[in-house]
């Protein structure tokens, strides 16, 4: 049994606090499972700071800490809270280096989750901050991806938004891209949909479809590798991108960028354009394996 992602995040946080005398800010950190086991059991004297329940002010307080060179980590328990928590992050911290030549690096851990928790606490909500300059966005779902992202943060002067997902915390394995040979279609999944996209790929392959996959971690800046462009251009039916944010957000933006580079059809499947209710029957969930399989089949059929 390999190391779970939650333990990697916990170790990184511990080292970060010790090495840089840094601080971790957030609400309800020191209780309710220590952020699903991703936070070492430390307190204010060690740098783990319980913010007041004032969401907007909290983001400002973290920004002030970052201005003092603390490289703080800011935990946002549900990404829907970005609406309040990120106001001063995106309007001050992200602009600080460009306007005032005053670096203000913050590592935000925005946690997404799904299932019967309503329209705010459910799903990813990074689309609302995506457009802002000075912000880098990553969505690591594995140990290696998380470590690499953290290493980048340490060298950077920018604000990093790490879009996490609770489902990934127990993950022990790594993902691998598959773009070798001529594919019928290539999946480009984001966040938690990467787990379902892998399952969908296997099922489709068993049925005779040639399905490639490119796992998306670096969302902003979004670099499309030359090898990806070649594989997509070679594919018969283009790309299907999947996400656990609303499909008319970041997903459409990235899809357009892929289209610009490849001139191939790029379809998307994310959250439906509707509010999530709390009961399972009225929830708005990200695409699962079956949704992805169906979508691939319909794309291929249409063509």
């Amino acid at each position: 049994m390999g190391k779970e992602l939650r333990d990697t995040i916990k170790d990184i946080t511990h080292r970060h606090l010790k090495k840089f005398k840094s601080q971790v800010f957030g609400q309800n950190l020191t209780g309710v499972g220590w952020v699903a086991g991703t936070l070492p059991k430390l307190f204010e004297k060690d740098g783990v700071i319980e913010l007041p329940m004032a969401d907007v002010a909290g983001g400002g307080i973290v920004t002030g800490s970052a201005l003092m060179g603390k490289r703080p980590i800011y935990i946002i328990r549900y990404q829907g809270y970005n609406w309040f928590n990120c106001i001063f992050i995106v309007n001050y911290a992200c602009k600080s280096n460009e306007i005032w030549r005053m670096p203000c690096p913050i590592m935000i851990r925005g946690i997404a989750s799904e299932g019967s928790i309503g329209p705010v606490a459910g799903s990813a909500h990074i689309s609302i901050v995506y457009k802002m300059p000075g912000l880098k966005i990553f969505s690591p779902m594995t140990n290696k991806e998380y470590i690499n992202t953290y290493k980048k943060f340490i060298k950077s002067k920018d604000v990093f938004y790490i879009s996490e997902h609770r489902h990934s915390y127990s993950n022990t394995s790594e993902f691998k891209n598959d773009i070798i040979g001529k594919k019928d279609i290539i999946l480009m999944p984001i966040s938690v949909t990467r787990f379902e996209a892998e399952k969908a790929k296997n099922e489709l392959q068993q049925k005779g479809f040639k399905v490639g996959i490119i796992h998306l971690v670096n969302l902003k800046p979004f670099e499309i590798k030359q090898s990806w462009v070649k594989a997509i251009k070679k594919s018969k039916f283009g790309v299907l991108m999947t996400d656990n944010d609303y499909k008319d957000g970041i997903l459409r933006v990235l899809a357009h960028k892929v289209y610009e580079k490849t001139n191939k059809n790029v379809s998307v499947i994310g959250l439906k354009d509707k509010s999530a209710g709390h009961h399972r029957k009225v929830d708005n969930l990200p695409p699962n394996k079956n949704d992805i399989v169906q979508m691939v089949k319909s794309i291929i059929k249409k063509k």
């Binding site: 907007v56 002010a57 307080i61 973290v62 920004t63 201005l67 001063f88 001050y92």
Partner: peptide, 13 residues
């Protein structure tokens, strides 16, 4: 906004 940001700067420094 400078109230929260200044507060954070003071808290950390």
């Amino acid at each position: 906004s400078n109230a929260c940001i200044g507060t954070g700067a003071c808290f950390s420094s």
